[in-house]
Design a protein around this nucleic acid. Structure first.
Length: 552
RNA sequence: UGGUCUAUGGUGUAAUUGGUAACACGUCUGUUUUUGGUACAGAAGAGUCUAGGUUCGAGACCUAGUGGACCAACCA
């Protein structure tokens, strides 16, 4: 048996709550605002919320936190639902904060009647001034002493659209001197004559996050409301509303959000990258969005593995993107079909190969998985290898092709370079080799030990393909830590397009699997831009490369 | 002249007070290999931010200091 993994702090809380009978079962929720696409940081939250429920036999709601109609859109709702499902999770109920607008309005009236909320006439600037600062207490607004009747009347007229946008708000009467800024009479409602994606034009007042989130949790009887650290200071307010309104005691817990090296995680910045066309869209394979990672070739399994490995705690963190890359390699190594693709072709002529002969060689689709079967690879007297795989005067540790040394062509024969042909500039344009007829893979009686094995394509059979090589989006590890405009830190080499790579023909009749390992290159996936036979591949991640790392 | 949270190898996460700190990624060696991949074997790397205190005993508890994060949007 495997050793039990230690519980994270949230699992400890849940298991204790269950053991002590505080709850019979648990209900969590994933509460995105539909104002952008989900990213890998959301994946952490999704895995946490759904994972916790799954582990302890509970369930999870999907609830869209749609209290700000000016930034929200159904396009985002659709993408969010799609991404969660793709990640492999199912919600028991789908709700919207806007489902509760009537109830929330009634809650507000109740608080007014209890003398715990009042209509504010001050401008945003005046309200900010009265709030004080973290080190100085705020001052009470003149409106704070309005009568219940007047507040009731004004709030109803706010709802009825009698006042201009921005002219009045509803505030909770808590404590203007609290050291916690969130408690200094926070806003509950503001006037917005905006069309809502679900409620249409029914409302012209919309609740703020603080007056919607906790109550929504309580209405749904969420037992454990898990959010990120920056909401810690909202927790007393979250509890205050629930207590004053006497609702189901949902409880908020906070964890540290995910930060990843060489990328940004703020929705605002991601939106900016999209709007300013630094990337092609939310699903650009360089984006840390779920849709971007999907298009890049990441699997749901690899993302879940990653979320599992990074753990959950309450301290700030910056995860090395190499861990994410490890997770996708780990997954794809076991599942991706092996294929050969030459990116920078160098012609090799095998001078002793019988004219016109084509040998169809059987090659395994995946050495890690016998059930993946085999395919046939054409081998002929004219092939292409990678320019990097030949050196006229190789150093001693180089075990690829060089004049006078042997190399194995994957699944094929052993060849030896004899001579080169050069152009006027002295560049090698063709390598002439001889092959060992009795070295065919599987029936090799030559006794020759070739140091290296190369990938290649047969010139007459190769198909041209386009390869998009993606690299990290930013040049610096910790993008958020610098004061510079983050856009100046973009990596100019985040995308390299190889227009005429040459691929073995097996791609043409393979529609079973869209994720491949291009041997000795990396993992690649077919892009949706592919039309007909013009195949376009995205590089998901390179293979680990000890040779390159050693400084070659 | 505030409040809250936080501090363990390069990174992330453990160690639920009783053997000079474990696991993963990364790094470095070596073996195997028809992928310089994978697999396998091994190594280096922290003495737990600092100072006090409690205790027979502190990475853990307490106090203070220091560093970091968050809080003053009619955003969430």
């Amino acid at each position: 048996m495997e050793e039990a993994k230690p519980l994270n702090f949230l699992e400890e809380i849940v298991s204790k709550d269950l053991a002590q009978g505080k709850h019979q079962s648990i209900l969590t929720r994933f509460p995105p605002e539909p104002n952008g696409y989900l990213h890998i940081g959301h994946a952490k939250s999704i895995c946490l919320n759904f994972g916790l429920a799954k582990r302890y036999g509970g369930a999870t709601n999907l609830r869209f936190d749609d209290t700000n109609p000016v930034t929200e859109d159904t396009e985002y709702v659709d993408s969010i639902r799609n991404d969660i499902k793709w990640l492999g999770f199912d919600w028991v109920d789908e709700f919207y904060a806007s489902d509760y607008f009537d109830q929330l309005y009634a809650f507000a009236v109740e608080l007014i009647k209890k003398g715990l909320a009042y209509v504010e006439d001050a401008t945003p600037e005046e309200i900010a001034a009265m709030k004080g600062t973290p080190t100085q207490p705020g001052t009470n607004s003149p409106c704070r002493s309005r009568s219940v009747e007047e507040n009731l009347d004004l709030f109803e007229r706010m709802k009825n659209g009698e006042f201009k946008e921005g002219s009045r708000t509803l505030r909770a009467k808590v404590d203007m001197a609290s050291p916690n800024m969130q408690l200094r009479d926070p806003l509950m409602y503001r006037i917005k004559f905006a069309h809502h994606h679900r409620t249409g034009d029914k409302w012209c007042i919309y609740p703020m996050y603080d007056f919607a989130h906790g109550q929504s949790d309580a209405i749904e009887h969420i037992t454990h409301s898990i959010c990120t650290l920056e909401f810690s200071s909202h927790r007393p307010l979250y509890n205050w509303f629930i207590e004053q309104l006497n609702l189901f005691p949902s409880t908020q817990y906070e964890f540290a959000r995910l930060n990843l090296t060489y990328t940004v995680m703020s929705k605002r910045k991601l939106l900016q990258l999209v709007n300013e066309k630094h990337v092609t869209g939310w699903d650009d394979p360089r984006m840390p969005t779920i849709s971007g990672l999907r298009r890049r070739g990441y699997t749901p399994e690899s993302i879940r593995m990653f979320c599992d490995k990074i753990g959950v705690a309450q301290r700030e963190n910056l995860i090395d993107v190499s861990l994410l890359e490890f997770c996708i390699r780990e997954d794809l190594n076991k599942t991706a079909l092996r294929r050969m693709v030459v990116f920078n072709p160098l012609k090799v002529v095998i001078t002793n190969w019988p004219a016109g002969k084509v040998d169809m060689i059987e090659s395994e689709n995946n050495p890690e998985d016998e059930t993946a079967g085999t395919r046939l690879v054409p081998f002929s007297g004219e092939i292409y290898i990678e320019q990097d795989d030949f050196m006229e005067n190789p150093p001693s540790k180089y075990f690829r092709l060089g004049i006078g040394n042997y190399v194995r062509l994957k699944a094929g024969y052993i060849i030896k370079a004899e001579s080169v042909i050069k152009d006027e500039q002295g560049n090698v344009t063709e390598v002439h080799c001889t092959y060992e007829p009795n070295s065919r893979s599987g029936e090799d009686t030559s006794g020759i030990k070739a140091k290296g094995t190369l990938h290649y394509v047969s010139a007459a059979h190769a198909i041209p393909v386009t390869v998009r090589e993606y690299d990290r989006l930013f040049k610096v590890e910790n993008v958020a830590a610098t004061d510079d405009d983050f856009r100046t830190l973009l990596n100019p080499d985040s995308l390299t397009i190889v227009e005429n790579a040459l691929a073995e023909p097996a791609f043409l009749d393979d529609d079973t699997n869209s994720r491949y390992q291009f041997m000795r290159k990396g993992y690649f996936t077919l892009d949706k831009d592919t039309e007909g036979k013009n195949l376009i591949f995205n590089r998901t991640v390179t293979l680990k490369d000890g040779w390159a790392k050693a400084g070659n």
